[in-house]
Design a protein around this nucleic acid. Sequence first.
RNA 1: GGCGCGGUAGCCAAGUGGUAAGGCCAAGGUCUGCAAAACCUUUAUUCGUGAGUUCGAUUCUCACCCGCGCCUCCA
Length: 466
Amino acid sequence: MPLRLYNTLTQQVQEFAPSSDNTVRMYTCGPTVYDYAHIGNFRTFTFIDILRRTLKANGFALDHVMNITDVDDKIIRNAVAQNKTLEEYTAVYTQAFQEDCRTLRLETPERLIPATRHIDDMAAAIQRLAEGRHTYRSDGSIYFRISTFPEYGKLSHTDFSGNIAGARVDVDEYEKADARDFALWKAPKEGERYWEEPIGPGRPGWHIECSVMAIKYLGETIDIHAGGVDLIFPHHENEIAQSESLTGKPFSRFWLHAEFLMVEGQKMSKSLGNYFTLRDVLGRGYEPESIRYLLASTPYRKQLNFTFEGLKSAATAIERLRNFKLRLETDKFPEGADEEVAGRTAAASRTFTESLNDDLNTAEALAAIFEYVRDVNSAMDAGRFRAGNAAGALEFLKSFDSIFQVIEPTQKGGYIADSEVESLIAERSAAKKARNFGRADQIREQLLEQGIVLEDTKSGVRWKRK
RNA sequence: GGCGCGGUAGCCAAGUGGUAAGGCCAAGGUCUGCAAAACCUUUAUUCGUGAGUUCGAUUCUCACCCGCGCCUCCA
């Protein structure tokens, strides 16, 4: 089954393929680096990561641009308050963002670009919009005139007719002709950072960076544009207005939006104060993989209620997968290969892939692998699973983890050496043989204190790091 | 008010016009020197409420109730 994705623009699930050649041209809205990102933000970035990996699994190449918004009102305000330059201020959070992404095993986009690197391009685009009579000036700022773009509202499916056109609305201390109009270029205010450009001194509005960078790197019509649902309006609607006024072509073929992470029935957000940063959660002793699993396990178009109980349940689920992999790698199985087991492997693998291709149905994909784990554990217990089945099973696990990225534990240093573990296990086995269970249990306890868990199996002692 | 999403077992959650995936938790059992891991059994005659369409609806239609989001910065 080909990949199908829900397109906000058409409000339908549609078959996806890149428009030309094999490369997906994708733009996703990145963070505004005025503070640490919270795990609600990372829900969207995790969704984008699952999307990237699924696109690759479908054999597509990627050219993915993500912006880093490093100039906006909050950044300017905070930088000024801390007596720092914009660059000094944003460097801290840009770096933190990249570290957090690595921690969550989020792939780095092919191009991760700060907005301030393209101020000239933005000014040039605004100039061209002005030449096309899509703009007007007011108090030194430049606004986009929505009335010049009749299709405004097509993404958010909002009908703006009969709306306050011509009314003079005072927003953000700037004068706009129409409430829907938005700033392309903001006149400098006292003490604020600004850029000297042919269109006049100032700084870019929020929306223009995405249009300009997407078109510059990916072309006038891109394949996918993605972000959180709160960006549908006005951000993405405004991007469409600017971009399509500039090029006369559809801006993006597919628009994908991730739903919110909720806390106690409300969206997680800075302004509500009900948020946790990744660092907060890790500080409470949870593993990055658990967070990733939790964020990825509920399909992206459904609101996901965050709880620490959910995080614990994710950790247990991951443990089950890890135990399964360890058993595949360490148990001794009879020679040959069982056809029924091989058939199960193929079927589960197919279900897994098709679930993801069905608009990234991660819940169903997880169900496929867990059902498989139970079946195979059962086959192992019954002696039906054979040595020749192990490679296929491990391969399926590998393809699972190439999307979910939760099985391999994050390395933590300071461990007891393998050889020492092995020699203690040997000593314990000898003690057991002599029926000296006191000593055997003492060794097991001792190892447990160092994070080593022993399991006695028919094919010998199996151990793992916890 | 406009637009959109959702209400499925203790919790999380998938799903289909033909009779309820999966994960976590709980109880009992098998295996084990004891554990651990794993497996088995039990846990929604029922999918917010009411009506309708249908041979048959959790799945379609309508109404209603409840929750959430966007409409202002926001992933």
